[in-house]
Amino acid sequence: MAYLKDQRRETMMVEGSWNIGAYRYKGSTQLQEYVDGLKEKKLIGSLCPGCGKVIVQPRNICGRCHRRMDKRMVVSHKGTITCFVISPPIEKGKYKIIGIDPVEAGIIQEGAILVPVFVRFDGADSNINTILLNSSPEQVHIGMRVKAVFVENPEGKLSDLEGVEPLKE
């Protein structure tokens, strides 16, 4: 089996960096349309004129029909949880987001448990990935009815949609 190396010793290690500077990606306008909708507390999706699928957040191209999804639709605030996962309790110093410790920065309490969920809003044919609020890991289940929670004063940002909370019907 030994081919180049008769003796399996550690080789020399050299340091190397991979510094390719910043990329200049081209962004699309769909996300802008979506956040403009959030500002008015509307959930905007794109409608494919070919197959009639509605995708939230708006998407550019329908792969099935190979055409642009250039129509826009507003979907309901109410929806259904299609999937969820449960995080372990958030500990101080365990996570860093762009260099900030979320517990220290007061974004979240120590020991809190996050429940990221997939929600399908009524009228949409797609999932949206967000967080379940005002509930507990014991309550969450697939098929749970929820409604969107917006911040008090939406400013046209993705964070305007805080998450979803259980719907009392």
């Binding site: 081209k26 962004g27 699309s28 550019n60 191209i61 642009r68």
Partner: peptide, 9 residues
Amino acid sequence: PRTREDQVF
């Protein structure tokens, strides 16, 4: 001034 996806499509 267009996205990668747009141009490829």
